[in-house]
Amino acid sequence: MYTEQVMDHFTNPRNVGEIEDASGVGEVGNMRCGDIMRIYLKVNDQDVIEDIKFRTFGCAAAIATSSKITELVKGKTISEALVITNKQVAEELGGLPQPKMHCSNLAADALKEAIKDYQSKKK
């Protein structure tokens, strides 16, 4: 049911953990559906995402999409990161089973929340 890429990110997730003095933190999801994603960003003064970490409670799709997005945006600028969508993350993983598209495909939303947090702190 899952692609090889999903299983790879599920079994060897990239960038798990947290950043202590994070520039921004974002969390989405809820326990009712059983998916919670938290993303930590370290952004430098050129608006480049120098480091990114995540922690996720959820199914393999939730863990894999979280892991994948950290890989996609590391080294990117905030404006480059902001255009990434949940759909793109799923595509990068070779697709997700249909029921997972809504409930567990939230990584881009978590990233956007983290960026929002960073931008509000910067002001």
Binding site: Y2, F10, G34, F57, C59, A60, I63
Partner: peptide
């Protein structure tokens, strides 16, 4: 603190 499907898949592996 963990979700069932992740447990099932990990055990399946």
């Amino acid at each position: 603190y963990v979700e069932g499907e992740s447990l099932i898949l990990s055990l399946d592996l």
